[in-house]
């Protein structure tokens, strides 16, 4: 994890060291911090909370929440736990969409197609007016996916 925060540099620049510490001022926010901040912003919007309201709940100013959301400030583990509880999401939510190498999916490849597909499925599902037909569709889909009804709920 430490190496992920370091960027390669020439030996001459760093007095023989092979890595230099990544800084927000020079290198910009860390992509992972930006991703976590983006997830925080999305969830806050879903909850209909302003930055000021969220800040008040965790004892922070709205500027601090802004900086978390843009990735300018890193969120500590304890703070992330606190935010997850307030926003009613599991901790893993903040890291959803990150691949194994820690890169954010850019939305141009398969992930984007999956999102569009999911959006179309949801659109078609809510387009069914009859609630009985809707639940029948859900049942078929869960059966096809090989999941039990209880699991899908």
């Amino acid at each position: 994890m430490t190496l992920a925060k370091l960027t390669p540099a020439s030996a001459s620049e760093n007095g023989g060291l092979m890595f230099k510490r990544r800084t927000v001022i020079v290198d910009g926010p860390d992509p992972i911090d930006q991703h976590v901040g983006g997830q925080l912003r999305l969830r806050r919007a879903q909850a209909g909370m302003t930055q000021t309201e969220l800040g008040a709940k965790v004892g922070l100013s709205f500027q601090a929440v802004q900086k978390y959301e843009t990735g300018e400030n890193r969120i500590s583990a304890s703070r992330l736990y606190q935010l997850a509880r307030i926003l009613d999401v599991p901790l893993a939510y903040f890291f959803e969409g990150l691949d194994e190498t820690g890169h954010t999916e850019d939305g141009t490849g398969a992930a984007e197609l999956t999102r569009k597909e999911a959006s179309m499925v949801l659109g078609a599902y809510y387009g069914i007016k009859d609630p009985r037909l809707r639940s029948a569709c859900l049942l078929i889909m869960t059966r096809m996916a090989g999941r039990s009804e209880a699991e899908s709920e």
């Binding site: 939305g107 959006s119 659109g123």
Partner: peptide, 17 residues
């Protein structure tokens, strides 16, 4: 905030459909 923008757009597209 691209991710949030995409989520709003997805919700809007459902409305459009």
């Amino acid at each position: 905030f691209e991710h949030t923008a995409r989520c709003y757009a997805a919700a809007a597209s459902r409305c459009r459909e």
